[in-house]
Design a protein around this nucleic acid. Sequence first.
RNA 1: GCGCGGUUAGCUCAGUUGGUAGAGCAACCCGUUUACACCGGGAAGGUCGCAGGUUCGAGUCCUGCACCGCGCACCA
Length: 720
Amino acid sequence: MSETNEKLLKPYNPQETESKIYKLWEESGFFNPDNLPNVIKESFTIIMPPPNVTGVLHMGHALMLTIQDIMIRQKRMQGYKTLWLPGTDHAAIATQARVEKEVQKKEGKSRHDLGREEMLKRIKTYAQESHDTITSQIRVMGSSCDWSREAFTLDEKRNIAVNTMFKKMYDDGLIYRGNRIINWDPKGQTTISDDEIVYEERTSKLYTFKYSKDFPISISTSRPETKVGDVAVAVHPEDTRYIEFIGKEYDLEFCGVSLHIKIIADKEVDPTFGTGALGVTPAHSMIDWEIADRHELSRPQVINEYSKMTVGGENLLNKKTTEAREIIVEWLREQNLLEKEEEIKQNISTAERTGGIIEPLPKLQWFINVNKSIPERGNKTLKELMRDPLEKEEIKIIPEYFSKTYFHWIDNLRDWCISRQIWYGHRIPVWYRSTSLTAGKEEIYCGTEAPQGEGWKQDEDTLDTWFSSGMWTFSTLGWPEKTKDMETYHPTDVIETGYEILFFWVARMIMMSEYALGEIPFKNIYLNGTVRDSKGQKMSKSLGNGVDPIEISQKYGSDAGRMALIVGTAPGTDSKVDENKIKGYKNFANKIWNITRFVLDNNPYVGQMVPLCQTYGENKIVNEFNDITKDITNDMENYRFHLASEKIYHYIWHKFADELIEESKKDNEEGQQIKKILLPIWIDCIKILHPFMPFVTEEIWSMMPIESKNLLMIEKWPNV
RNA sequence: GCGCGGUUAGCUCAGUUGGUAGAGCAACCCGUUUACACCGGGAAGGUCGCAGGUUCGAGUCCUGCACCGCGCACCA
């Protein structure tokens, strides 16, 4: 046995092999498409969804990296100019909230104690550490991405792109500043978008009462404390019970607060709910705000950013909303106004990142208008720009049924609030100044850089993190500059991500790309499901049921982890982590290790090997293998990696090893015939398996007796 | 309330255009003069949630229902 093959005498050791192999790949330069020899086809591009710099990689990332690496490796072997561009996301609120929490815990200080500059310094340090961990973990997974093009959603180049986009949208009238009701997160002290709300079902009480003895109509609410902000009672226009009161106005005292209530008719009111009459609180309810719009009502704010009351006498003023609720209910009881108290199930809006209970508040914020027609884009609206490419099937979603969810979301889409009252993120590129010259009126300047002249102050707010993520497919390629990368790699081929961010991210990317470039950002959307624990529960920090992909790699090898994640995991469906399954694929790695030993050892035909792509005449075994190769290639090109991986696994173990190798041991004509073709078939098996289990196959490849071979990662995919 | 998905072997799940139901793991029997025990051979296991329909033929298509999960909306 030759020297290299001595390794084969011991069981396969992934720990020893994997880091060595990754280094080999990285040093080869082949992750960078510019360095690829033998490019015979056009470009194939995937921009990696950037993991948040809030900590470490989880199994979901591992799955995403596996799927993308499979696609990338196959395309690279097929001769495409293959680019997989990696990066990380600053994840504004998530990252800042994390560091704030840490500072609070360790030093007992708030972000305001530290100040903007110092806080940002702390966050940046944390983000950098997190970034370093994550990028090393991406390497551990075997991801063949081009590190020379790595990007960060908050680096300088991306900042230029973001500011350019903001200004373009501002100039086109798509970005506007408005005083509107928004979702306020009292815990995170910032606004959030509709999509960042998570609903939690809780039981709460529904109170039915009258404002005062003289008031003719009873109303119901689960939030009595907001009722000090009421300006009207709305009833359905055809509700005969109340028709006589419509238009009347009442002055009354409610728990020490003077209210002026007008009875109005509005079709939005459901006459069958509660008393059929709705107390209208414009400043603290989305629907009421809209009713106030229609009826030109005033909008007094009674709750502030800290969820405290801003009206009332000593009994209410500055009290937390929860206390105020008790006080008002008690007052209603005392006054004998409370008619009914019942338990109801209610969906509470909470902030996705902080868990804070959302308080709707009116605030001056920046919004993106999704319903304004854009002359430059054939008078289409942003909504239409998001919808069209999927409707026209320029973009395909895998699995296809998610397009229904997508359209449904667009139909319900409202203007997107993009300003955030946090410090970590892209600062809004708008400056204000009021001087004696402007006679008290504020000047506004929007630009990619600070304006000339004295006295300008930049907007304090930063942008929703998804604004910069939305530009990811082209900001990473150099936009707004007209770069060679833009020309070569855009539109990209596939975006691969979890279905849970279809709206947050995928839709916004389509919007941004269609708007700014008039081009789709990608041709295909591959949505993967959620990786759950063995019981089917979502992995989370609080449950402590997370499985660390790096631990898995150390214990079983990344190859095994990758196979366990992809075999049987159909697009869009959730999967469970099963350590037994991973163990099975560790055994598989060892199996192919031993197959290699057998094929190379005591095989007189090794020296006269003829590659399989050359003619073998009419050979049943070769034909069968070619069919399987074709089938697997076809599966992979149609995103059926869960099938392709299983098929190659099955062929290798149960056909190649259990049948062909066993028969080749026979000391007869047939056995000799099989022995002749073992190596050429085996070589192609290794190639087909490479995208799935890149490390062990590359290591085996290095031992193959082939003249002038290169790395397996750029070998030609079997062509049948 | 509207929408989407799931329901297939003990468990976890595949099943691409309708053509005799598949894998992994577990359990059962046999086997260690072996490339590999991180192994091999064998057998067992399913009225494909329920009820209709289309079809020569349905796990697959259509209709209805049940249960589970998810999304959106409502949440006065």
